Computed example of a mutant assay.
Amino acid sequence: MTFDDLLPTGWSAADLVFALAWIATFFAVVAIWVPLLERRPSSRRAAAIRQRRADLLTKAREPKGRGLGKQGIGFAKQVVQRLELLGSGQHEAAQLKMLRAGNRSKDAVVLFLFMKLAMPIILGSVTAILLYGTGLYPMPPMIKLVVSLTMILVGFYLPEIYARNAADKRKAVLSKAMPDAMDLLVISVEAGLNLDSALIRVARELRLSCPELADELELTAVELGFLQERREALRNLEIRTDLPSVTALVGTLAQAEKYGTPLAQSLRVLAAEMRTERLMKAEEKAAKLPATLTVPMVVFIMPALFIVLIGPGILRTVDALGNL
């Protein structure tokens, strides 16, 4: 069998070469022409950036689930709206407390304000029923009144205590993760990324180890792209976290934005200071450990030690006196 036998009927080798050349030319023209159809590639890139920012903004501002279901929120919202608490100074203070506690949901603010109204009534009513209605706790009338008023005050301050404890725990978590975030930020900036991209990259790396700090950095990166004043976005980060290390970071970034100082060098110095501060805090806790263990040793260890050492002598003395 020859090569001519493999060709279609009526085709010659020259016809086959011509057809292959035509097909190759067609695909070459298509490969060159298709990229040229995109007359404005910058518009496509800008659209991709806008979409990315919109996704980050939606994701960063999503309410974080903290057990706040939709059931019961409607009634709480109606009560708060009827009392006109959403437009007052209490609303702003409650919103700030919820932000520092790590909950950016509007329902969380409404529920916080509602609980400040409901908890004194609930605890006061339950205490009054137990003391005056059931008679299970016989007390003088003045003591009953004092206990009822005390429970009303406890109910009023209970949401405040909860929000403060949640904010303190979150501050401790953020404080532990800040030195690592600073090191990653230095590496990202020295690699050539701008501030927005560096924050997003650091947030991506910290997503598993510290999701709280990752959320804050992502939200800051989004606000840097949306707000007119970049200083305002940095200021919002400082307000939400309420950490001295974040305040120093915001000051460094604001100085770099305003005066054009080398950002990588400033961040490296700041990261070294944070590492040193964390080491000093660990040494301070280690130095306090002996004094902290003194009370448990005296209360729990010394009585057992005295019983082991002096107990046999006391028992022998009792037996000797009994024989006399």
Rank of each mutant, 00 (worst) to 15 (best):
V147Q: 07
V147H: 00
Y132E: 06
D107P: 07
G102M: 15
N103M: 04
M119K: 03
A128G: 07
I122T: 10
S148F: 10
L123C: 08
V109D: 00
D107R: 06
G133S: 07
V109R: 03
F114Y: 12
G135P: 01
F114I: 04
T134F: 15
K144Y: 02
R104G: 15
M119N: 09
V110K: 05
P138V: 05
L131R: 04
V147K: 01
K106M: 12
I143M: 14
S105F: 06
V147W: 05
S125I: 08
I121H: 03
K106F: 14
V126N: 05
L123W: 07
P140M: 12
Y132S: 03
G102I: 10
G135L: 04
A118G: 00
L145S: 08
F114K: 00
I143S: 12
K116S: 06
L131W: 02
M119L: 14
D107Q: 11
V126A: 13
G102K: 13
R100N: 08
Y137F: 15
D107T: 05
M115F: 14
T134W: 12
V109G: 04
L136C: 01
I122P: 02
G135E: 03
K116N: 04
R100S: 09
A108Q: 07
G124M: 07
A101K: 06
F112K: 04
G124N: 02
S125Q: 10
K116R: 15
F114G: 03
R104A: 15
F112D: 09
M119A: 13
T127H: 02
S125T: 14
